[in-house]
Design a protein around this nucleic acid. Sequence first.
RNA 1: GGGCGCAUAGCUCAGCGGGAGAGCACCGGCCUUACAAGCCGGGGGUCGUAGGUUCGAAACCUACUGCGCCCACCA
Length: 890
Amino acid sequence: MCEVRRIGWVTETQAHQHTPDLPPKWNPAEVEGELYQRWVDAGYFHGDENSEKQPFSVVIPPPNVTGSLHMGHAFEHSLIDTLTRRARMQGKETVWLPGMDHASIAVHALVEKQLAAEGRNRREMGREAFVERVWQWKNEYGGKILSQMRRLGDSVDWDRERFTMDEGLSRAVQTMFKLLYDDGLIYRAERLVNWSPVLRSGLSDAEVTHKEVEGELVSMRYGALDDSGPSIVVATTRVETMLGDTAVAVHPDDERYRDMVGTEIELPLTGRRIPVIADEHVDPEFGTGAVKVTPAHDPNDFEIGQRHHLPMPTIMDEEGRIANTGTEFDGMDRFEARVAIREALRAQGRIVAEKRPYLHSVGHSERSKEPIEPRLSLQWFVAVDSLAAAAGEAVRSGAVRVNPPEMAKRYFDWTDNLHDWCISRQLWWGHRIPVWYGPDGEMVCLGPDEQPPTGPGWHQDEDVLDTWFSSGLWPFSTFGWPEKTPSLEKFYPTTVLVTGYDILFFWVIRMMMFGLYAMNGQPPFRTFVLHGMVRDQFGKKMGKSNGNAVDPITWLDTYGADALRFTLLRGANPGADVPISEEWVDGSRRFGTKLWNATRFALSNGATVATPVPPRDELTDADRWILDLTDSLVSDVDSLYEGFEFAKIAEGLYHFTWDEFCDWYLELAKVQLAEGGARADATRSVLGHVLDVVLRLLHPLTPFITESLWTTLTGGESVVIAPWPTVSGATADPEAAVRIESVQKLITEIRRFRSDQGLRPGQKVEAELSGACCAGLSTHEAAVRSLARLTEPGEGFTATASLEVALSTGTVTVRLDTSGAIDVEAERKRLAKDLGVAEKELAQTEAKLGNPKFVGKAPADVVAKIQTRKDAASIEIERIKVQIAALPQA
RNA sequence: GGGCGCAUAGCUCAGCGGGAGAGCACCGGCCUUACAAGCCGGGGGUCGUAGGUUCGAAACCUACUGCGCCCACCA
């Protein structure tokens, strides 16, 4: 029923209302794409490296080429785009550089899966064909996210799009490798690394996550099973590694084993004898105080092995199968072998104890999810000590700022405890290690312009670099490094980096290390901002694994980019996770609608920015009040940007627009417009001015709707390039604000009284106001009557009810002809409640003032404030008592 | 095992030494010529627990409880 009426009404509006260029409804889906294209075509997003203007630059955290837009991107991009658009409006030479990461491991996973579906694999097709295939895939399907970014409104400089595998960036990678190599900061060594049997590659520590698993702890006896010789009981969660044991270690001071140190003991199942050694690492309190030592498959044991020069047999192949042990277990998967060996030992009576389940922590490959296997292999490393020290120092010295500042602690945790970084991967998609080996053991590292040696026996290293190696160069490789390009000159160091706290270690630290190193101590960014993760409305992290992931595109379709962005920004407290729900996005869309309608109202009443706002002495209190409030809004927003307080910025703009501008000023403006003449003209210019400012302030957050509204309102070319608002500088009038606040209170009190009395909101009531003159509010009487729905007392006016409203400017008495039964009991109840509140306030303040310690020790301004509150409470109590006494008896 | 963070209204969160706040949700009333995607009015919290510091604590300190996160080579 209501629905039918609404549709009818909309039609009527379209027919009769003239608001040229502004349709009655905001339809984001229809308009956004067109607006975006117009911005791109106009070249607004392009930053000019030859400009004299102050630079603002930011690089995108490059999304994986395999990826599509998820809520985390939408959030991150909302933050970055907001900063970028504001900087552009501030007149800075602005670049937000877009691009993608080649995501070595992710691409392997994806393309290999495709190959598997075709019954093929990369090994049989060979390296060249595989890489060719990946490029094909990339060109056809990669980078879906880039077009999705347009939907969000990301104001990136498309002329500068980069890819970590493109030619320029590959040159940068090779150059960096050579620089570090020549400096001795890259080295090759046989080390125990995190090995992924699924990927058949080593991984860095960062790509390993530890998870609690329910395994088993098996204690087993090495050596003799009877009294014929010595034996030792050792325990392990990975029984299969016993095949690679080359010693049993005990603590040097452990009396129990002192006689055995230096002797040999039988390693079961292998026929080998291994030494019993003494090493400080062993904790005599733990278990039996004896440890099996498997140097090639355990980090601790590796170190023990090095100290004692033990043999280090590798007993597993690249896929995690037992190998080279000469036992029946060769060829068996490590987890099968775990059971088979345990049972073989049991058959020999060697299992002394078993704990199952035994909860312990096991490293897993972050990408491929399986447990990693520590494995001895020849890999390339970056020596991080000096680089990490410099990265730490850059933040400690203040050269690079961290937001939120508390996050610096986490950053130092990393820089101060970084291990050498394993950068080689036994994969094919990525930057190949620029090292060639010769027939006689030669090893040469080449820069991008050097010719690789040819001839028999020469070959290039087979491995590629960790994806994060190229990501670490992103803030300068993308601007042309190693060439000294004008862009690099202009835009490096970048102004700010915005990324999630979850990749602080993966990425931020590496950019810091590489940037400082390659750019002569100039950091990659002046500030880095770490944001939180997107969560659902119950605080659960949004993601596939939780089943609560929402495709941002569906919300973009339904609610528009502005609504999604505004919702994400509104939840963006520094460093904190951001909850989001569809309901809230809908709320943001309604905010857009509100803004739309307010602008329509202003336009239909002739609001314009063409005429300047008249001088203050020609303006009403309401005008001055809203103008002053607009000024404070501008300065508040500016200072909030300093701390990246996006949530408060959004909140402040929302509150100003809805509560102050729409709910109060627009209503007061209606009264002023009705007066006509100069008053109405002034009102029109105030309306135009305030809207102009608000739309510009909102533009970085909600670019699309503000563009439509602002261009219509001002006739300007685009709000994208409009100047950022500044405080107008006109003399503020705090007294006008005080009077308007009094007017607001008076109106609210009358409305509340009416509501309590059961009067309908639309019903006009005759009323007589007195005391208003004395309170200095006479000029606002029309506004009060209009907003509180009161009419002038007519003939035969008889007051049937009255209320008194205490204002800071005086008390106003309102006598109303409610011409009907007023609800005396409701009013009595309400007054009683108010009285209670006032009495409590009086008691509290009196208690404080009666406390000599308080009066003696508290600062004078606090005491004065309490005194004021006490006086106000006394007056309020008297007023309420008078009103209660005036109520008719029941 | 080490470290960090958070517990404030039904939900999500601000506030971080001097009157407990916002949005949404909720209750009541309204088609009021920008907006029913709206307007007007209203209810709702011993600020996790227990101590301490202070004239004064949601805020500072300590302990505890409960969540969450990060790191780690405990066989």
